[in-house]
Design a protein around this nucleic acid. Structure first.
Length: 700
DNA sequence: TGCGTGTGGTAG
DNA sequence: ATCGCTACCACACGCA
């Protein structure tokens, strides 16, 4: 395979213009300086093009201000680049034809394609003088030797330099090491070109990251074997792989890929390790047990640092030794749990039962920063959370626009409909890094690392979903208050959005996001008693606002709800922000945090507003008939908009009249639902009985 | 038993 | 001084 790849390199060298043309100094030098000098100069040139980012911008959030800090951090963060890669990959999938479902045929042939030292290879591609030097990718420069190495090319690896290492320590091992800055746009473009090449071979591509993918080539192999019935199958497969590697080399402008091949995903991934760098390796089924037996347990996927340690304590180092243990022993005695035990029990025998899932449905969106986060006051914390929330909501909406944009097949009106039908997230979580009391400053990555921290997490199940960044900010600020952490202790924060909802009544909601089974079940349970007491025909007769109805018929469900919530908000003064909906612990914490405010009229109003909005939202999704729904909603809005709650008796009156209007049964003995019922008592005499789906009744 | 929450582990 | 992210899974525990 080495000679094959050499010829691949030679043939592709002249065709680098197919992909990104190399426009900088990399290729044009003809002076007499040494390759090292030229490389260092090039590295400096690339760095200076990055502005303040790479030129010593290591300043904290406190100095820079939240807005600029959040923005700059994400632009420069390699982990953010890796973490958000699937969002960019989605844009490629969106413009492609839908992948036909995979039919598993026997024998199964899976390729695992992995670019060699991807970041470094993008930087040095097409320039052999550069490729012969030890090169790493990280933010540290010639002047400052700190910075964590993200990628080392194979020359540097020969000196023992590894990813994850500090630049200073790497330079001790390899004094001639040259460090290049990140070039994220180029990685993205190169990865896209690589993927397009993969898709030209087969539609069955399962993208893992910007430099790594699985391919199911069973059908490709079957076709090739049929066309050439007397050829050795292994030979046929290796030809396909080598051809693909040549193709990747061409379209990436000279980056090499390795391909591992096996009869399932796991085996092909193991094979790649053997194939690297710049090669192909087929792990045959007959050799699997021997091959795996020699591996360390930590080579198995899902065996990380922690599991390795547990196994090592029992004297288990290799997969051969691991095979002697029973699944039950792994699960119970080693406390790995039944699932992990089953997984590694099967992996060390070459078994992989993971289904082929090329485009899993996204269940959450998050944004977090735990570097350079330094705060002095609560208002700085709030400012930071506002910008983090804006960021995460942005990404959530962008994701939805893209994934559903494809389904709407293009026209602006259809796409608008798709966006409208997305309701947002109803789970809002906050993650906080809190500096440990006596944190050791040496266990910190540079002066702006988070150091030793406790990580805390609080979540809030909202009564209705939101896609409003300010709303998310209010919720996370509330959660932060409930945690009772001093601003000075904060070393990092993250905002996570979950339970992503799409209107199930919307025509375009087919399959992108769905309520989980549990959510759907719970929703039915909550709605059932309402359905039975809801007199639709009476509500219809009660409605006199026919003109408005005509105007409103063009609105989507969600627009209706938004309009209602908007109305609701206008009826109150600025609410206290407290995370007391649907979360008993958060409720208690908030009450403890500020007992006086928690029972206040404002706070109570906020509670009522959320509950009411939930109530209307449920109504929206439960009534199928547009006209009926709109009429009922108009009645409700009319009531709510005119209502100002100042006293408990007003609240009760409001609810009673609202229920009357809508022909709901008003019940004093609120015993409606359900398993996880929560009673929230204010300092007044009203009880709201609710579960985490929202209000289910009203008591005295 | 089933559900919701918080924590920990893992990959890339 | 040098950018410690993101998404998912699994589990323990408390509660009803």
């Amino acid at each position: 395979s080495a000679s094959a790849s050499a010829s691949a390199s030679a043939s592709a060298q002249s065709k680098t213009h197919i992909s990104t043309p190399v426009t900088d100094k990399r290729q044009r030098d003809s002076d007499s300086r040494s390759p090292e000098e030229k490389a260092k100069e090039l590295a400096e040139e690339l760095r200076s093009g990055l502005g303040p980012l790479a030129q010593g911008w290591g300043r904290s959030s406190h100095e820079v201000g939240a807005e600029k800090f959040v923005d700059t951090f994400f632009k420069a963060s390699r982990l953010h680049f890796i973490g958000t890669w699937k969002e960019r990959y989605d844009t490629l999938l969106d413009v492609m034809d839908d992948t036909p479902p995979l039919i598993e045929i026997n024998p199964r042939w899976i390729f695992h394609v992995d670019m060699d030292a991807f970041f470094a290879s993008v930087t040095t591609r097409g320039v052999p003088e550069l490729q012969r030097l030890p090169v790493v990718i990280c933010w540290g420069s010639e002047k400052s030797n700190s910075g964590e190495i993200s990628c080392a090319n194979y020359v540097a690896r020969k000196s023992g330099v590894k990813a994850g290492e500090w630049l200073s320590s790497a330079k001790e091992k390899c004094p001639t090491l040259i460090s290049f800055p990140f070039e994220f746009e180029k990685y993205t473009e190169t990865a896209m070109n690589m993927y397009k090449a993969l898709f030209r071979l087969t539609p069955h591509v399962l993208g893992l990251s910007c430099d790594e993918a699985y391919l199911d080539v069973s059908q490709v192999v079957a076709d090739a074997a049929l066309a050439n019935p007397f050829a050795d199958v292994n030979h046929v497969v290796s030809e396909i792989a080598e051809k693909l590697r040549r193709e990747i080399f061409q379209v990436t402008g000279g980056c090499t890929a390795s391909i591992g091949c096996g009869s399932n995903q796991f085996l092909s991934r193991l094979a790649t390790k053997q194939a690297k760098p710049d090669g192909y390796f087929h792990l045959e089924d007959s050799k699997v047990l021997d091959f795996i037996g020699k591996l360390n347990v930590s080579d198995l996927p899902s065996v990380g640092w922690s599991t390795t340690k547990i196994l090592k304590e029992k004297g288990i180092q290799t997969c051969f030794e691991l095979r002697k243990l029973s699944q039950k022993f792994l699960a119970q005695d080693l406390k790995l749990g039944p699932k992990t035990a089953k997984k590694i029990f099967e992996y060390c025998r070459g078994i992989d039962t993971r289904p082929w899932n090329p485009r899993p449905i996204r269940k959450s969106v998050s944004a977090q920063i735990s570097w350079g986060v330094r705060m002095k006051t609560d208002s700085e914390v709030e400012d930071f959370l506002k910008h983090l929330s804006a960021k995460v909501v942005d990404r959530m909406l962008a994701m939805f626009k893209k994934t559903s944009g494809n389904k709407a097949k293009g026209t602006a009106a259809e796409e608008a409909n798709v966006i409208r039908s997305f309701h947002g997230a109803s789970l809002v979580s906050l993650k906080v890094w809190r500096a440990k009391k006596n944190a050791n400053p040496n266990k910190r990555k540079g002066s702006l690392g988070h150091g030793q921290c406790d990580r805390l997490h609080r979540s809030l199940t909202r009564s209705f979903p939101t896609k409003d960044p300010e709303e998310v900010a209010r919720n996370t600020i509330g959660l932060f208050k409930a945690l009772k952490i001093e601003a000075e202790e904060v070393r990092g924060m993250g905002v996570i959005l979950g339970n992503l909802h799409e209107n199930k009544n919307s025509a375009s909601s087919t399959s992108v996001r769905k309520l989980s089974t549990n959510q759907a079940k719970r929703r039915r349970t909550v709605l059932e008693p309402f359905r039975n007491t809801f007199n639709l025909s009476a509500a219809l007769q009660a409605s006199t606002l026919t003109k408005d109805i005509e105007n409103l018929q063009t609105l989507s469900h969600k627009e209706m709800v938004d309009a209602i919530i908007d109305q609701l908000r206008k009826t109150k003064t600025e609410p206290e922000v407290l995370p007391f909906l649907g979360n008993k612990k958060a409720c208690e914490a908030a009450a403890f945090c500020n007992g006086e405010t928690c029972g206040s009229v404002h706070c109570f109003q906020k509670h009522m507003l959320d509950c009411t909005a939930q109530f209307l939202y449920e109504m929206c999704v439960s009534i199928d008939d547009d006209l009926v729904r709109i009429r009922c909603l108009i009645q409700a809005v009319k009531q709510i908009a005119n209502c100002i709650w100042e006293k408990d008796s007003d609240l009760n009156k409001y609810w009673q009249s609202c229920c009357d209007q809508l022909k709901f049964q008003y019940r004093e003995d609120v015993n409606v639902c359900s398993s996880s019922q929560i009673s929230y008592s204010s300092s007044r005499n009203s009880d709201i009985i609710m579960n985490s789906s929202g209000i289910v009744g009203l008591g005295k």
